[in-house]
Design a protein around this nucleic acid. Structure first.
Lengths: 221, 221
DNA sequence: ACCACTAAACTAGCGGTGTAAGTTTTGTTG
DNA sequence: CAACAAAACTTACACCGCTAGTTTAGTGGT
């Protein structure tokens, strides 16, 4: 049954199905043959549209990153923009937690990720941060967001609390919290983000003077 | 050639060889057959000592985590202890960057990771942090360290700077820095860690009073 | 209207993977 | 010395990513 009247496969359709499949069954269970089956097609047919499995995963990851909102850098002060970006970034990743391991480790050439980095870097430089500092800040926040989305020890705790209690006495309490895994993760994220931004604000004042350099892209210094 | 006079395989020997192999050739290239070959043995022989490939990887990951130094929590104030731990943690991960993706995504039951979490949590609580806060702080720092070890955009930038310059104007400078990838990563880590600790210190003073609660485990409050 | 060409599916198959099953021999223990 | 466990072996299964070659439906040119 070759060359149907209407193509059954599209890059977009493949990516959407792949995303749904990964969301539903996890990254290890995701294979080209299974993806093809979900599309009603034989395995190798995918290679008419993508050169490699990683290229498909890159497209999926790019779709996830593309949902991140960086508009704050155009309208708000750098700290508020960073905060909004970080939360949006986190939301995008936790919406598709199963591709995060791939996304986090990946160089790859994913336009959305580069566009995001560009927006953050540009916004920080425009706010007066020295270029090198802007690079570091963007990277540090990415580290934090990606790490938080990757998974917590809470997820790793086993069901039986008694099993570890004897060996690791302090974890008794923390262990109980594993039930509220998600809220722990979010609480840790909120706390860490606040601390990071607080520290950055102090650094900003120290390095650039409390007068503030170029505040919002207006009026030079 | 079954059952040699002296066993050729040991759990320890397997883990050591696996670590070396992953360090040398990367995680994707690591397979049970290749590991067995490196040990002068057929593939399935490994299963006399480990039930599954993941169990081997868990052991490797545990070995890496085991090198993290948490002794600071016994001797220094919480902020210094956190700083020392974070750097030690980072050093342990960057010493074996290739298993980090596995380690980061994995819950797994790895005693060293649990011992580490226990030491951090205990140290923070002893310093006066409320238990919930201690959990969050430990998690936030793990997020940051794991994220930073996983990979930076610097590593992801392609060789040809001109290729992206047109599309993402702000990245021109950052792009050049890709050559100094390692120093960028480390700079971002140092900056982020300082900011985090600064923010936490402020929070500590605000929440527990500038007098400090129980400073070093002595003298109740 | 025909013909060449391309696109998009197919089938067949290669080399590799993790691991289960059963075999054989060695070392240890009652 | 017999019985048993341990630790290697061989064989084999189902799956993996991907290549190669085949077949046909649609498309552009004359």
């Amino acid at each position: 049954m070759p060359r149907p009247r209407q193509p059954r496969l599209t890059r977009q359709l493949i990516v959407e199905t792949a995303t749904a499949l990964i969301d539903a069954e996890g990254l290890p269970a995701f294979s080209t043959r299974r993806l093809a089956a979900a599309l009603g097609v034989q395995g190798p047919s995918l290679y008419n549209h993508f050169a490699t499995k990683d290229e498909i995963l890159d497209a999926v990851a790019d779709g996830v990153t593309g949902a991140v909102d960086t508009s704050g850098f155009a309208s708000r002060d750098w700290a508020a923009a960073l905060r909004g970006w970080a939360w949006s970034y986190r939301r995008a990743l936790t919406a598709h937690p199963n591709i995060v391991p791939y996304l986090a480790q990946g160089p790859g050439r994913r336009p959305a990720a580069l566009a995001m980095a560009d927006a953050v870097y540009g916004g920080l430089v425009r706010a007066g941060w020295p270029p090198a500092r802007a690079t570091h800040i963007g990277a540090a926040l990415r580290y934090f967001v990606a790490g938080s989305a990757l998974g917590s020890f809470a997820r790793g705790f086993v069901e039986d609390p008694e099993l570890y209690a004897a060996h690791y006495p302090h974890l008794r309490q923390a262990h109980r919290l594993a039930e509220h895994q998600q809220s722990v993760d979010e609480g840790a994220f909120a706390l860490g983000l606040d601390a990071l931004l607080h520290g950055l604000a102090a650094e900003y004042d120290r390095a650039l003077g409390p007068l503030g350099a170029v505040e919002s892209g207006q009026s030079s210094g």
